[in-house]
Design a protein around this nucleic acid. Structure first.
Length: 882
RNA sequence: GGGCGGAUAGCUCAGGUGGGAGAGCGCAGCCCUUACAAGGCUGAGGUCACAGGUUCGAAUCCUGUUCCGCCUACCA
């Protein structure tokens, strides 16, 4: 045969094959025009992003599914793309500007956006190139970006329709505000963190001079905006205070004491200061009052105190102001005490700045009607969430969902398609830019300056990427998509919203399955983050071990419902696996000759084998194919990967190849080649490069130009008889090896072996296959028979259906042999005792299923026989000693 | 406050419907046996967190406890 390289070179193979695959268009669904449609839309990574472990796992799993389905002949589309990631991207570019001493406001809106586009052009492809390195079989000709023209059109269409249907509205109320990003955030974009803070007790003097009422707060600076003090109406201590007025220190204002049933009398002093302008809870109380309490905004959009906070505090940062207020209260003798207090504080999920509840006009989606249908879709199994345990989280979030604030005060994103008439104040919501006001015909119109939440456009991703609102062929073919693969951290952000939007605008679910995979953590179980410095860069892994070893590791780790603690050792382990398979190939090719060029591998091989080993390995192959397919069917990626690993290494390499060496006939060569070829196909979705590299070099007649588009192995009939017979042979071999191993006999010493068989079938099998035993156990002679007696001075290994005796030159070490056998005897006795108890238990016999009872009885009989054999051996040895 | 998940070999983890526990790595011993020392063979190592319960039978189902992790919430 032609020279097969000594070792696998990942780097050259990876580049060579990926380019070929793309060039030939294998990743386009057109390669299987007749197949059933299969579609995955990628969770679009941020354009600012660089491939991290989470992406790598996410992409690997999608690629495994896509390649598997493609090989099964389906019309498989994996649609790639990126997300413009409004706040994140804007932050990145702003940071860059800051380095040049610029900021977006001096630049102006248009120039700034131009800068971002430039940045996107330069760096925006980074992550998709990294996906290519990973082997991702995406159809790049269909790649999308959330700010593409088509997708933008979809966004405007959805906005206008929701507005027309009364599901989008504008309102002024408290919103989560990031004073650094200077934008509103949705509830989801706020991260809560438990922090050690201070609870400050402040005395508010009663105007009538009869004393004071003490309130407790974690945010003293907001007292400048208080408009009431609330107590529980049933709180006896404060009954007489309700309706009175207090003097609000530092402000010169007076505010009422009111009653509200939500006030918890047991917390703090039981009196609650009410700041409707900076606290969600207070806002709700204020609105419940009749008349409603006024709201005063004392902290501005930049996190600094406003004019309304008073001359003295105006312009101070909110934390500076806090210190100042405490100082001043102390001086007035109104600071009662301060105590340590741990509470939860909201932070901006992009820049970690503490959120300030802030009252501004914003656009909202009325979410409840959308959520209702989305709940239904999961409840009636139109959408399956896997693992199912996530359904609970989904339901509980959806059932308590609140209206979604979708406007953001940033520049990078989809501009809200709303115009205001400067003359008559009319609000115009339109797909196209209006020229005149529909009401007063004025041309003096101004577009809303805000952009939409990034998640608004990604919510449309499963249909906007396929061409919606146009009724394209792709849309008709691939919607609903087959499965969405994602991590749980964006279940609410993204998955839930896609379901709502899909149902609303396509009148069908966006995907049939949602597969939720784990988060990748470091070896200590910590979430990987740049600030902790514990990130493992997937690209470094790929560089060190090759893409295939890395991908296989991720798949093997991807057990459902558990986070992944990534360890580099495993990657190394799977690189060894690659080496193993590579060398197995080398061996097989070494045994082929020029005449094997274009060998036809027909499935007839599966049932036409003569030798026991060949019949056995094919039966095991059949089992493996069955198992891998069913594991993938259930998204049990780790089971699929391990099954292939186990079969390839421990059955094919460890046993079959070794046995093949004893009988290298034409038929066996074919069986080796056939099994190898099937292994490659089975493995291809997991290790695309290695398998292609080897496959291309096999001297087999190929019906396809690439393993990528070859057919995935299909299950066929197992041969249970071969598996049973092979078990006898394996028992004999391991029996001999155990003796050799425990006595530290070097492999170079060939043994004389006698095997006593307990049935005719076992005896026949052994007699027909002594060549395997001789070779694999390194035996000079193997004599078998049902009437064999233990030779003098031999060592013994007892198996279920046979006894192995090995004779050795020189004196047998009786005491160590006895010790070994007695140890085994003891184990056996324990097992027998256990089974005896079970089988003497009337209730077990009457209540357990028949087949279980039968099984246990059989087990018992086997053990008893084994015990007899063992005792016999021990007796012999002992009598020999005497 | 509510919810979810985890606790199995020294380490990292598997163990779809209950029928006396497995892998990889590591460890010990013997081996360069003509595909592979990135390898082969053999072996040691576990009261399946704890306490109850259901059952003929529990790592597996139920209840509670402890310890970890996560999600969620308008805890002044």
């Amino acid at each position: 045969m032609t020279e097969f390289p000594k070792s696998y070179e990942p780097k050259t193979a990876e580049q060579k094959w990926y380019e070929r695959w793309v060039e030939k268009g294998y990743f386009k669904p057109e390669v299987n025009p007749e197949g059933a449609p299969f579609c995955i839309v990628i969770p679009p990574p941020n354009v600012t992003g660089s491939l991290h472990m989470g992406h790598a796992l996410n992409a690997t799993l999608q690629d495994i599914l896509t390649r598997w389905k493609r090989m099964q002949g389906e019309k498989a589309l994996w649609l790639p793309g990126t997300d413009h990631a409004g706040i994140a991207t804007q932050n990145v570019v702003e940071r860059k500007l800051a380095e040049e001493g610029l900021d977006r406001h001096t630049l102006g809106r248009d120039a700034f956006i131009e800068k971002v586009w430039q940045w996107k052009k330069e760096y925006g492809d980074r992550i998709t190139h990294q996906l290519r390195k990973l082997g991702a079989s995406c159809d790049w000709s269909r790649e999308r970006f959330t700010l593409d023209e088509g997708l933008s059109k979809a966004v405007r269409e959805v906005f206008v329709r929701l507005y027309e249907d009364g599901l989008i509205y504008r309102a002024t109320r408290l919103i989560n505000w990031c004073p650094r990003c200077r934008t509103a955030l949705s509830d989801l974009e706020v991260e809560h963190e438990d922090l050690e803070g201070t609870l400050t007790y402040i005395k508010y003097p009663l105007v009538d001079g009869t004393g004071h009422i003490t309130v407790a707060t974690t945010r003293p600076e907001t007292m400048l905006g208080d408009t009431a003090v609330a107590v529980n109406p049933d709180d006896e201590r404060y009954k007489d205070f309700i309706g009175k007025t207090v003097e609000l220190p530092l402000t010169g204002r007076t505010i009422p004491i009111i009653a509200d049933k939500e006030v918890d009398p047991s917390f703090g002093t039981g009196a609650l200061k009410i700041t409707p302008g900076h606290d969600f809870n207070d806002e709700a109380i204020a609105k419940r009052q009749d008349p409603q309490l006024p709201s005063i905004t004392v902290i501005g959009e930049d996190g600094r105190m406003t004019r309304l906070a008073g001359e003295k505090y105006k312009g101070l940062d909110r934390y500076e102001c806090r210190r100042a207020v405490i100082e001043d209260l102390k001086e007035l003798g109104l600071l009662e005490k301060q105590e340590r207090y741990s509470h939860s504080v909201g932070h901006c999920y992009r820049c970690k700045t503490t959120i300030e509840p802030y009252s501004t006009p914003q656009w909202y989606v009325k979410i409840e009607p959308l959520a209702k249908k989305a709940i239904e879709a999961v409840r009636n199994k139109k959408i399956r969430i896997i693992p199912e345990s996530w359904e609970n989280s989904y339901f509980s979030w959806m059932e308590n969902i609140k209206d979604w604030c979708i406007s953001r005060q940033i520049w990078w994103g989809h501009r809200i398609p709303v115009w205001y008439c400067n003359d008559c104040g009319e609000i115009i919501v339109s797909r196209e830019e209006p020229k005149t006001c529909g009401k007063c015909k004025s041309e003096n119109l101004k577009q809303d300056p805000d952009v939409l939440d990034t998640w608004f456009s990604s919510a449309l991703w499963p249909f906007s990427t396929l061409g919606w609102p146009e009724q394209t062929e792709d849309l008709k073919t691939f919607y609903p998509t087959s499965v969405l693969v994602t991590a749980f951290d964006i279940l609410f952000f993204w998955v839930a919203r896609m379901i709502m939007m899909g149902l609303r605008f396509m009148d069908d679910v966006p995907f049939r399955d949602v597969y939720i995979h784990a988060l990748v953590r470091d070896a200590e179980g910590q979430k990987m983050s740049k600030s902790k410095g514990n990130v493992i860069d997937p690209l470094i892994m790929i560089d060190k071990y090759g893409t295939d070893a890395f991908r296989f590791t991720l798949a093997a780790f991807a057990a459902q419902g558990r986070d992944i603690k990534f360890s580099e050792d495993r990657v190394q382990g799977y690189r060894h696996f690659i080496n193993k398979l590579w060398n197995a190939t080398r061996f097989i090719l070494m045994n082929l000759s020029e005449k094997h060029r274009d060998t036809v591998l027909s499935t007839d091989i599966e049932s036409a084998q003569q030798t026991l080993a060949s019949r056995w390995i094919l039966s095991r192959l059949a089992f493996t194919i069955e198992e891998v397919n069913s594991a993938l069917e259930d998204y049990r990626f780790n089971d699929a990967a391990n099954t292939i690993y186990q079969f390839t290494w421990h059955e094919f390499c460890d046993w079959y190849i070794e046995m093949a060496k004893t009988e290298m006939s034409e038929e066996v060569r074919l069986c080796l080649l056939y099994t190898l070829e099937r292994i490659l196909r089975l493995l291809h979705p997991f290790m695309p490069f290695l398998t292609e590299e080897i496959w291309q070099q096999l001297p087999v007649k190929k019906e396809k130009d690439s393993i990528t588009i070859s057919e995935y192995p299909r299950p066929f009939a197992r041969n249970k008889a071969a598996e049973t017979e092979m078990a006898y042979i394996m028992d004999a071999i391991t029996g001999i090896r155990t003796i050799r191993g425990e006595l530290n006999i070097p492999p170079s010493e060939e043994l004389e072996v006698y095997i006593k068989t307990s049935t005719q079938a076992v005896d026949r099998t052994l007699k027909e296959n002594t060549h395997y035993i001789k070779k694999l156990a390194r035996a000079k002679t193997v004599i078998t028979g049902m009437d064999i007696t233990k030779p003098k001075g031999s060592y013994t290994a007892v198996k279920d259906y046979l006894e192995v005796y090995v004779t050795l030159k020189g004196l047998i070490d009786i005491s160590s042999e006895l010790e070994r056998l007695n140890k085994e005897k003891k184990k056996l006795e324990e097992s027998i005792l256990f089974l005896q108890k079970k089988l003497h238990n009337e209730e077990f016999l009457s209540r357990a299923p028949k087949h279980i009872v039968e099984k246990e009885k059989e087990k018992y009989n086997t053990l008893i026989q084994k015990q007899e054999k063992l005792l016999e051996s021990i007796e012999k040895i002992q009598s020999l000693e005497m």
